[in-house]
Each structure stands twice: as structure tokens, then as C-alpha cells.
Amino acid sequence: GSVVKEKKEKALIEVRPYVEYYNELKALVSKISSSVNDLEEAIVVLREEEKKASEPFKTDIRILLDFLES
């Protein structure tokens, strides 16, 4: 629970300088966080969101995924 939350919060802070739609990304992460149990599940849902998103938000999600998977 809290470790996953920390990882996601740290990821958002780390990617902030590189993303165009930070507030939207943060809102998406919050929405996903409330419906998943762990980081792996969150990553799966983020990948689905990435497929549906259009640029440049798609790239923002990709940047976040790269950080979460590192």
C-alpha cells in the first residue's frame, strides 16, 4: 500500500520536468491508484490508458511508465 503510493508519488515528482500534462497525469495516477492493489496492476492499467491516449499525453504516460518500471 504505502510503498506503492510512495513509488508513484516519487515517480510523479521525477517526471514532472519532462511531461507536458502534469496535472492530467497526476489525476490519472490518482484515479488508477484507487482501483488497483499494487504497482504491477497500476502499470498494466497505465499501459491500457497509453494505448487510448493521443499525443502528447501518450508520451507523458510513457515517460511515467519508464520511471515506474525502472
Rank of each mutant, 00 (worst) to 15 (best):
G1H: 13
G1P: 13
G1K: 04
G1T: 13
G1D: 13
S2F: 04
S2R: 04
S2D: 13
S2N: 12
S2A: 13
S2W: 02
V3A: 14
V3P: 11
V3C: 15
V3T: 14
V4A: 10
V4M: 14
V4S: 08
V4G: 13
V4N: 09
V4R: 03
V4F: 15
V4Y: 13
K5H: 13
K5Q: 14
K5G: 10
K5W: 15
E6R: 03
E6G: 09
E6M: 03
E6N: 11
E6I: 09
K7C: 15
K7W: 15
K7H: 14
K7S: 10
K8G: 15
K8P: 15
K8R: 08
K8E: 15
K8S: 15
K8F: 15
K8T: 15
K8V: 15
K8I: 15
E9D: 14
E9S: 04
E9G: 02
E9Y: 11
E9H: 07
K10C: 15
K10Q: 15
K10L: 14
K10V: 14
K10W: 14
K10M: 13
A11G: 03
A11K: 02
A11I: 12
A11S: 04
A11V: 08
A11C: 15
L12N: 02
L12K: 01
L12F: 04
I13A: 14
I13N: 10
I13F: 04
I13R: 12
E14W: 06
E14I: 08
E14C: 15
E14K: 05
E14P: 01
E14A: 15
V15M: 03
V15E: 01
V15T: 01
V15W: 02
V15Y: 01
V15F: 02
V15A: 07
P17E: 06
P17Y: 05
P17A: 06
P17G: 04
P17H: 04
P17V: 05
P17Q: 06
P17D: 07
Y18F: 10
Y18W: 04
Y18K: 05
V19F: 01
V19H: 01
E20R: 14
E20M: 15
Y21T: 03
Y21K: 12
Y21F: 13
Y22S: 03
Y22W: 10
Y22R: 01
Y22G: 02
N23Y: 13
N23I: 11
N23F: 08
N23Q: 12
N23W: 09
N23V: 12
N23C: 09
N23D: 14
N23H: 12
N23T: 10
E24C: 04
E24W: 04
E24M: 06
E24D: 06
L25C: 03
L25T: 00
L25M: 01
L25E: 00
K26D: 13
K26S: 13
K26P: 00
K26G: 03
K26H: 13
K26A: 14
K26V: 15
A27G: 05
A27P: 01
A27Q: 10
A27N: 06
A27D: 14
A27H: 07
A27S: 08
L28V: 04
L28T: 03
L28I: 04
L28K: 00
V29G: 00
V29P: 00
V29M: 11
V29E: 01
S30E: 15
S30W: 09
S30N: 15
S30I: 10
S30V: 08
S30D: 15
S30R: 07
K31R: 13
K31E: 14
K31G: 07
K31L: 09
I32D: 02
I32R: 01
I32G: 02
I32Y: 03
I32S: 02
I32M: 02
I32L: 04
I32A: 02
S33R: 03
S33G: 05
S33F: 15
S33M: 12
S33V: 14
S33P: 05
S33Q: 07
S33C: 15
S34D: 14
S34N: 13
S34L: 08
S34Y: 06
S35I: 08
S35Q: 13
S35W: 07
S35L: 10
V36Y: 05
N37W: 05
N37T: 10
N37Q: 13
N37V: 05
N37P: 09
D38V: 05
D38R: 06
D38S: 13
D38M: 06
D38A: 06
L39D: 14
L39G: 06
L39A: 06
E40Q: 10
E40F: 11
E40W: 08
E40I: 08
E40G: 08
E41M: 07
E41C: 06
E41D: 06
A42Q: 10
A42K: 02
A42C: 15
A42M: 15
A42N: 02
I43K: 04
I43E: 03
I43D: 01
V44A: 08
V45C: 14
V45F: 09
V45E: 11
L46C: 03
L46R: 00
L46N: 00
L46G: 01
L46D: 00
L46S: 00
R47Q: 08
R47D: 04
R47L: 09
R47M: 09
R47A: 07
E48I: 13
E48G: 12
E48K: 10
E49Y: 07
E49H: 09
E49T: 06
E50Y: 12
E50I: 08
E50C: 14
E50A: 11
K51F: 09
K51T: 08
K51Y: 11
K51I: 11
K52N: 12
K52S: 08
A53T: 10
A53P: 00
A53S: 07
A53Q: 08
A53E: 10
A53L: 03
S54Q: 11
S54G: 07
S54V: 10
S54E: 10
S54T: 12
S54P: 06
E55R: 06
E55I: 11
E55S: 04
E55P: 11
E55G: 12
P56C: 06
P56R: 08
P56K: 11
P56N: 04
P56E: 08
F57Q: 02
F57P: 00
F57H: 02
F57C: 02
F57A: 01
F57W: 05
K58L: 02
K58P: 01
K58C: 06
K58V: 04
K58M: 04
K58G: 05
K58H: 03
T59Y: 11
T59A: 11
T59P: 04
T59F: 08
T59I: 07
D60L: 03
D60R: 01
D60E: 01
D60S: 05
D60Q: 02
D60W: 03
D60C: 07
I61S: 00
I61E: 00
R62C: 11
R62E: 03
R62P: 00
R62D: 03
R62M: 09
R62G: 12
I63N: 01
I63P: 00
L64I: 04
L64H: 00
L64W: 02
L64Y: 15
L64M: 06
L64C: 03
L65I: 05
L65T: 14
L65R: 07
D66S: 14
D66M: 13
D66A: 13
D66T: 13
D66Q: 14
D66N: 11
F67I: 05
F67R: 07
F67M: 05
F67W: 11
F67P: 00
F67G: 02
F67A: 15
L68M: 09
L68W: 06
L68G: 00
L68K: 00
L68V: 05
E69T: 11
E69P: 03
E69H: 11
S70V: 11
S70D: 14
S70A: 11
S70R: 09
S70C: 13
